[in-house]
Amino acid sequence: MQEPKEIFVDTSRCTACKTCEIACAVAHSKGGNLYAALMESPAPKRRLYVEWVSPDKHVPVLCRQCEDAPCMHACISGAISRDERSVVVTDTDKCIGCWTCVMVCPFGVIGRHLETHKSYRCDRCPDRETPACVSSCPTKALIYRTAEEFSHGVRRGAASELVSGEGK
């Protein structure tokens, strides 16, 4: 089986422009474009959150698809499972809005649709090759790769830094 891709965050590149948040909400709207999304009710919700850490760091926070996902095991209605993409998904038909998942998610990334009384979270954009947030990020702070590819990139970056350091 091919290793699933993950969304990685390079916080050094994030400028908190929040383009990803808008792209996420639009991607999860009925109309699928910004203008239609603005008029929709219930308002489309973003599923990642660009947060600020004092003094000058910005961190896009989103579902990490935990290996032993606490939300999945805690769910009292069997609504949360892992799909064939290895993504933790909430079945809205089964969700009863008890918010147990909200209580146990250590990342604080499970939202609540108050209108429909259902929880929601990053679904990794099942209909897209690349999640909307990643495609939209103008500074490439969001990276969609397998863990292996990502760590390879990190190692290569570190190595080239070492080499350039030695040259000095």
Binding site: P70, W99, C101, V102, M103, V104, C105, P106, F107, G108, I110, R112
Partner: peptide, 10 residues
């Protein structure tokens, strides 16, 4: 408002 309750639990 119970937003992010899991982080407090953590």
């Amino acid at each position: 408002d119970i937003t992010g309750a899991g982080m407090y639990r953590y």
